[in-house]
């Protein structure tokens, strides 16, 4: 179980977490929602081990994770296919599933914002890890593509030990079966945990 015990984090004179304690629900899918800038991304980064808190204790964090960053973070000098080949043995399969089969040879700069997001999602889904972290996966996606990604996420919830997703848009979260943790902040504070 992932437990935050009196965790605090400040940077650039801003307090994001202050004596924050929370036990992450033991569901296969946990959706973290809250307004923009409340500290959700920081929370996700701490759970994934990408950010170290200033003080406090956190236990039960996963060892091997796959992480969809808020920015696409595709390597600009590599094609979409090459970007995926770096993390997966079956890059074509995942690119096809997110609808990028015809764009495998393109460089990130040649893709639209939505296509880059899909490529980044494909990379996160393709990477074998016990826990999948997704930070705003529906960003820049039209409704039809978001529907495709929702289906893929449902599938991921079944095959991964755990999927933790951050979104400021609870409308998408409501379409997935799991637990929604609503937050406010900064500093980040839990409003409620609710099953969906």
């Amino acid at each position: 179980m992932i437990i935050f015990d009196n965790v605090s984090l400040s940077y650039d004179g801003k307090t994001v977490l202050k004596n924050f304690s929370w036990a992450v629900p033991e569901e296969r899918l946990v959706v973290i929602t809250g307004p923009s800038g409340s500290g959700k991304t920081t929370l996700l980064r701490i759970i994934a081990g990408l950010t170290i808190p200033t003080s406090g204790k956190i236990s039960g964090t996963p060892h091997r994770v796959s992480y969809l960053f808020q920015e696409h973070r595709l390597i600009p000098r590599r094609t979409v296919l090459e970007n995926l080949r770096l993390v997966s043995e079956k890059p074509d399969e995942w690119l096809e599933r997110v609808g990028l089969a015809d764009s495998v040879g393109l460089y990130p700069a040649e893709l639209s914002g939505g296509m880059r997001q899909r490529a980044a999602i494909a990379r996160a889904l393709a990477f074998p890890a016990e826990t999948l972290f997704l930070d705003e996966p529906f960003k820049e996606l039209d409704d039809a593509t978001a529907g495709v990604i929702l289906d893929l996420l449902e599938e991921q919830v079944k095959v991964r030990e755990r999927v933790i997703l951050v979104t400021h848009d609870p409308e998408f979260a409501a379409k997935l079966a799991g637990t929604v943790a609503r937050f406010a902040g900064p500093p980040l504070r839990l409003l409620d945990n609710a099953d969906i």
């Binding site: 994934a48 990408l50 091997r64 994770v65 796959s66 992480y67 960053f69 920015e71 973070r73 390597i75 590599r78 090459e82 770096l86 993390v87 990379r123 990477f127």
Partner: peptide, 21 residues
């Protein structure tokens, strides 16, 4: 730095990070 963090998250290792990032 974002690409380096991505490389670490996806466990590229030193050689892959050097060659591709």
């Amino acid at each position: 730095r974002n690409l380096l963090e991505m490389a670490a998250a996806y466990r590229f290792g030193r050689t892959k990070t050097l060659l591709h990032v």
